[in-house]
Design a binder for these strands. Structure first.
Lengths: 206, 206
DNA sequence: GCACTTAGTTAACGCTGTTAAGTATAAGAA
DNA sequence: TTCTTATACTTAACAGCGTTAACTAAGTGC
């Protein structure tokens, strides 16, 4: 049997937890199978008993991150005091998630794993759930007309994309060092919200 | 002397052109020193006579891309018929550049090269030039008040970030396949522009 | 003719992800 | 109890990676 003396929980979990630790603390580049093996006290090939490839391991990590993000987004919606407020809250929370967990965020949204074309469908569903939280918040805030003003998938994707752009550039240290980040993100969120034209009085145009 | 029979132009140029070809046609992952060497008919180590490292080669590629982008952005501004139009044109052009050259765009803005912290200052300057084109367009369109409504660096960065988010997600194939991309990008650009609140009466758009 | 520079080479180091084959150990069947 | 099979894991190796050290051949200046 296993009885590698230390394994109360499954090796799969041990691998995942160690991998997450490496990624979170030292970034994706530091994650190698041999190093991971040394950490968990098994040979590198043992990892392949639980994950088809390094990418598969990464995908599992992404799924965990998606769940974590989902929890934070839904909590943010729950905390909101109005439908309109919920959209702002969910945007703010998304940004904060990215800034709080840059390495996680990088793996989840910025990495370009080799085999991503043949990505397990389940992961897409998990990522989709997060987009749906945004979409639902927008729909609630838009009032009863529902999808009158264009399909909400486009709206939600646009909101997501705009927030993602700001987060990913900051994480990759591509923005000017002298940039005031609070002002930057406030502007991004305000701009994103104003692009939605939610409240009626702001609908002077269109 | 060199006289590797084929070299009219310098080996440095040959390396750069071949590297760009690989990246553009098959993506960054396909670019390896040994493969590049085989392409140009020299040994892999010869590349190190002209570039300090693979990252340095990549940086040179990024600079070329930045110049190309700069040319397109300034041309777009020149084509515009009004200051307000110029902002929209430059946004459109930026998006088109990304969609026209996804592999190039990936190397330029989505990759996270190892040694990027110690990036040659010249590259930053080249990247900054492109941000300045956006910033200048915004400033011109904002009228004479100049920087009254917040520093233009934040404004330009925000515009850039929002466009970048949309482009990078599409390139990484992270957006829903059923998404109408034209509608998506139109919404991104409109949202970005409305976030600038340039002049209220001219915003009778869309 | 000798030193020096230039442009290129080969061989190797220490990594990487991954696979094939082998080894104990436990469980189930005869 | 013995035979068989499955489980959990290992070692050794493959092919490839970026990079370096050491070398060679050819041209240049004195």
């Amino acid at each position: 049997m296993s009885n590698h003396s230390e394994s109360e929980k499954s090796l799969r979990r041990l691998i995942l937890d160690s991998a997450r630790k490496v990624v979170v603390e030292e970034g994706y580049a530091a994650l190698t199978m041999r190093r991971l093996a040394k950490m968990i006290g098994y040979s590198a090939t043992s990892i392949y008993l639980h994950f088809e490839s390094k990418d598969a391991l990464l995908h599992a990590l992404i799924e965990e991150g998606m769940d974590l993000l989902h929890a934070r987004l839904t909590e943010a919606v729950a905390r909101a005091e109005s439908d309109a407020d919920a959209v702002r809250m969910v945007c703010r929370e998304y940004v904060d998630f990215g800034l709080d967990n840059p390495e996680y965020y990088e793996v989840m949204f910025m990495l370009h794993p080799q085999r991503m074309e043949r990505f397990p469908a389940g992961k897409y569903r998990r990522a989709r759930r997060n987009l749906d939280v945004i979409g639902q918040a927008i729909r609630s805030a838009s009032g009863s007309d529902g999808d009158a003003d264009g399909p909400s998938l486009v709206k939600a994707s646009a909101v997501w994309a705009q927030l993602h752009g700001a987060i990913s550039l900051v994480i990759a240290q591509r923005v000017d060092a002298s940039l005031d980040r609070d002002e930057f993100f406030n502007r991004i969120i305000d701009g994103t919200l104003s692009g939605l034209k939610l409240n009626a009085e702001a609908e002077a145009q269109r």
